[in-house]
Design a protein around this nucleic acid. Sequence first.
DNA 1: TTGAAAGCGCTAACAT
DNA 2: ATGTTAGCGCTTTCAA
Lengths: 344, 344
Amino acid sequence: MDTKIVDVAAKAGVSPATVSRVLNRSNGVTERTRLKVMKAIEELGYHPNAAAKHLRSQRTKTIGVIAQDINSTYFTEIIKGIENMAYAQGYRVIICDAENHKEKEQEYLNLLLDRTIDGLILIVPLITDEEIIELADKGYFVAVVGRHIQHDRIPCVYTDNVKFSREVVKHLVQQGHRDIVFLNGHPDAVDSFERLEGYLKALRDHQIPFRPEFVENGHFSENGGYEALKRLVEKQLSFTAVFAANDEMALGVYRACAELGIRIPDQLAVIGVDNNRISKYIQPTLSTVNQPKYTMGAILVEKFIDQMNENQFENKRVFVVDSELIVRESSLFTVGKKSGPGNK
Amino acid sequence: MDTKIVDVAAKAGVSPATVSRVLNRSNGVTERTRLKVMKAIEELGYHPNAAAKHLRSQRTKTIGVIAQDINSTYFTEIIKGIENMAYAQGYRVIICDAENHKEKEQEYLNLLLDRTIDGLILIVPLITDEEIIELADKGYFVAVVGRHIQHDRIPCVYTDNVKFSREVVKHLVQQGHRDIVFLNGHPDAVDSFERLEGYLKALRDHQIPFRPEFVENGHFSENGGYEALKRLVEKQLSFTAVFAANDEMALGVYRACAELGIRIPDQLAVIGVDNNRISKYIQPTLSTVNQPKYTMGAILVEKFIDQMNENQFENKRVFVVDSELIVRESSLFTVGKKSGPGNK
DNA sequence: TTGAAAGCGCTAACAT
DNA sequence: ATGTTAGCGCTTTCAA
């Protein structure tokens, strides 16, 4: 348990330096001595002390990942992508669950500042672009998923929110809808902003006038979606479709509809974003947008590690991946139904 | 970024030792010098180097947590409990996602061996009791959730599988069922074994003869549950209720029933275990067993940290928490339905 | 109350 | 190809 490199060296009849060489680069050592050393390591059950190694080499080969909340498959899938790719490159990953608190995110930033990790990946955090840029400017390695930051040293991967949002609305229009409500997420989140932008552009595409009262805020949460829909109904607005900026809010819409006796999709079509696992179990199954989460994590971390190893520089820093619309029951009229939307 | 303790010391006009004292124990330092030092730290933006600290102090104040798969709320809830309590005690937590591979679990064991972490918590891992005990015997700190290990130095927290399984079966019997199928998890998992035991005891409680063909293996997975139900039906067995050892398998049962045209709960009652989030969204809502996951994590880590700090010894090492049966639609006959179970 | 100095376990530059 | 040795940045005895 507390055998150290000198013990191994003594047992193998070599110097600590040689043991170190065997442990790291295998070149510069005879096969014969290499075997002697390996044998000694084996027999002593020796494990190099990480702290000593990190202190001496000034790197930990560890990447930190801050996720907004690990209780959602959006984050866990991305993390899996990051982790597997990182391990393949000899890097460890520390997962941090910020539980939706900015304060907790800040807490985890210390991992970077105290050099516990070599680099930090933020998955759509609450921390602002400015704060992230400040870190990068100080020389720390930072990368982001699900967000675009204008900075030479910050790798990004995200999906084109505007693009898929337009597709969502287009699909709804093709189903005969014109009174389409948009449920926004956190008002200051980039994702919200861009999805709203896509919604607006799509309305223009189809010559549908924009009605400000058709946009409600649901803060990306189930309960937020629930309350947003209730507010809309109370306002006596007449609409036939809801585009929720994520599946969580769509779930809230389902709950509100159940209470109010609104039938999905006949009286109200619903589409979410994220392809949350629940979306295909719920009744009716929820139409949604799928992002290639695992791939996003993997692509990003590969680039990130390259950057940290200085193998590669600024050639390709930003990765935009494609999302796909998954049409399920919640946005399609039931077979046999003749009537158009809005027939309450 | 690379300011060190000597820089702070120089700036504050004191010795490195004094700075260290300010940083750790605040006693033995005048308020005046403490303020001087704090000011210097602030102005230089100094952050102590973790590796150096760990190397010197021989502890990292970090706990590792290996979860079988972070893609399930069972694990994430426990992790949240662990993390929040650990942080409150000044400990960091490293989350490891083993993705259901024993090999990956072994990989993460290195964190313990190379002293990156002071202690390791395993949440129902695939690693065997023997392997865990071996670590403990070597002097490493290890603890487990959802499993009971007979060893003085290994804190455990789990829920009484036998007890709640009996309750589940009792509830089904009270609903009029006698032909109750049990869907087992991994055949070698303790949880499976104990839930099966509870099932058997309950049958005895109600004088229902045990039929071996009523037990099928579903490996705790959705697909496993799906296939298990199909096998049962192919065997032409007649049964009116399914007790699945977890919600995932119950989900598989739902899918199989949908394909086979079996109505839940009228033709088949279903109960799972875990209170997975999906269980209350699915139609019909799934009856299940809820374990106090967050609390389990919190209780355990508190004890574990005490142990690592040697504040406390062997007085209370094993925590058994209570689970509760949550009855939802999948195990209740629809209102208005007169007929008993099994009326296909 | 504060400072001087040793040393945690490792790697890498330099020497042989 | 292998050994010697300095030093990574910190904490903690011991001395003042």
